Simulated scan of single mutants.
Amino acid sequence: MSEWAPKRFWTKAEVTEVPGGHSVELDGRPVRTPAKAALVLPSRDMAAAVAEEWQAQGDKIDPMTMPVTRSANAAIDKVAHQHAEVADMLADYGDSDLLCYRAESPQELVEREAAAWDPYLDWAAETLGARLEPRQGLMHQPQDAEAMARLRAPVHAMSDFELAAFHDLVSLTGSLVLGFAATHRARDPEEIWQASRVDELWQEELWGEDEEATALAKRKRDAFLHACRFHSLARS
């Protein structure tokens, strides 16, 4: 038995200018979020991407084929109402950043992590003015408070839409630094994503590829690349 899905009721999805930004209308009717808030988007490019998703729907609406719309809804219905809390949660990743917790052995993995991660820590020190220090082992060791404060401020300064994207960039990689690298376009998004998977790729080389793990990694990669795109749309 198939699950119920809302049916398409419009012919044309169009971008429209509204106070504070842009929105999308379906045959002249404004799109609203699941919480019934006005869908006011920060850029015409984002509105065009949302309109394209609505226009591409078939007879039944499938939210899973509308990633930009879903992210915009999250920014308006969720992030906007708890911006400071979300920003603090993401900034806290810096104190236990993936890039700072290094293997003690084998030496090949130690060297592989250093080669992949040290350039990002150097970039953060130069670009963001915050030097995070790597540690060997899994025991938590707090980072410098001043460095953490310098990383926290730009997170709080993000718009609701930027922060919605940043949430996924950081949580998917486990790294505040990689999240910033993605938003600053420090390197190609695919390269940044691969940097977050150094340990996983090492395990795959040792034990072979696991189908479920590979499928999960692909879903996470797709979500990461979408978050990169959504952040770009929020600033275009």
Results as ranks from 00 to 15, higher is better:
Thr69Asn: 10
Val68Leu: 03
Lys7Thr: 13
Glu108Leu: 10
Pro19Cys: 00
Met148Gln: 15
Arg229Asp: 11
Val40Ala: 11
Met89Ala: 13
Leu172Cys: 07
Ala37Met: 09
Ser71Thr: 10
Ser23Leu: 00
Lys60Phe: 07
Asp199Cys: 02
Thr11Phe: 14
Glu211Gln: 14
Ser96Pro: 00
Gly208Phe: 13
Ala116Trp: 05
Thr11Ile: 13
Pro63Ser: 09
Arg29Asp: 09
Lys7Ala: 15
Ala47Asn: 07
Trp193Ala: 05
Ala84Cys: 00
Glu191Asp: 15
Gly208Met: 11
Leu163Trp: 07
Glu85Gly: 00
Ala147Gln: 03
Val86Glu: 11
Gly129Arg: 06
Pro154Ala: 03
Ala125Pro: 00
Trp4Ile: 10
Leu99Pro: 10
Asp222Val: 04
Ala87Arg: 04
Asp188Asn: 12
Asp188Leu: 08
Ala164Phe: 01
Ser2Val: 04
Ala115His: 12
Leu98Tyr: 07
Arg197Glu: 06
Ser232Leu: 06
Thr33Asp: 02
Ala213Val: 03
Ala114Cys: 07
Ala38His: 11
Phe180Thr: 08
Lys7Tyr: 02
Ala49Ser: 12
Ala74Tyr: 14
Glu53Lys: 00
Glu205Tyr: 13
Arg152Thr: 09
Glu17Asp: 13
Ala186Leu: 08
Glu126His: 03
Ala13Val: 07
Ala153Ile: 04
Thr127Gly: 00
Ala103Val: 11
Met64Val: 14
Ala165Ile: 02
Asp160Met: 03
Arg112His: 13
Leu109Cys: 08
Ala227Met: 06
Arg32Lys: 15
Ala80Tyr: 08
Ala75Glu: 10
Glu200Trp: 12
Ala35Phe: 08
Phe180Glu: 09
Pro42Thr: 06
Met46Val: 01
Ala145Asn: 11
Thr127Val: 14
Ala56Met: 14
Ala115Met: 07
Ala213Gly: 12
Ser43Arg: 14
Phe224Lys: 01
Ala213Ile: 02
Ser171Ile: 06
Pro154Tyr: 03
Pro67Leu: 10
Val177Arg: 06
Ser236Ala: 15
Arg32Tyr: 02
Pro19Tyr: 01
Leu201Cys: 01
His226Ile: 00
His81Ser: 14
Pro134Arg: 04
